[in-house]
């Protein structure tokens, strides 16, 4: 029998569909009957979706681009030759 503790340990792989079919089915049966575990799995899903909404833009302002490119050009000009 799969316990509530087992469910919490496998919940992440369950959500990401990384579990073997048999384990997945056992979890589904447990979840059908256990309100606490249903709540746990649902809260973990909500947590993951909330994290996805925190995605930050990767845009870089042009001053930063200038600075980095200038540093790289300087580095290239002064780079020791590899023998």
């Amino acid at each position: 029998m799969i316990s509530c503790k087992d469910i919490t340990e496998k919940a992440n792989d369950y959500i990401d569909r990384e579990l073997p079919l048999l384990t997945r089915m056992k979890m589904k049966i447990h979840l059908f009957a256990c309100i606490h575990c249903q709540r746990y799995v649902s809260q973990l899903q909500i947590t993951i979706l909330a994290l996805r909404k925190m995605k930050k833009e990767h845009s870089v302002d042009e001053n930063t681009v200038d600075n980095i490119v200038n540093n790289l050009k300087n580095y290239k000009q002064n780079e020791p030759e590899i023998k």
């Binding site: 316990s3 509530c4 503790k5 919490t8 606490h36 575990c37 809260q43």
Partner: peptide, 17 residues
């Protein structure tokens, strides 16, 4: 994993979510 004091000795929730 999730701290063991959430569960009783049978692995059932002692402190449910």
């Amino acid at each position: 994993m999730l701290s063991s004091n959430h569960f009783d000795e049978h692995g059932h929730w002692a402190t449910p979510p």
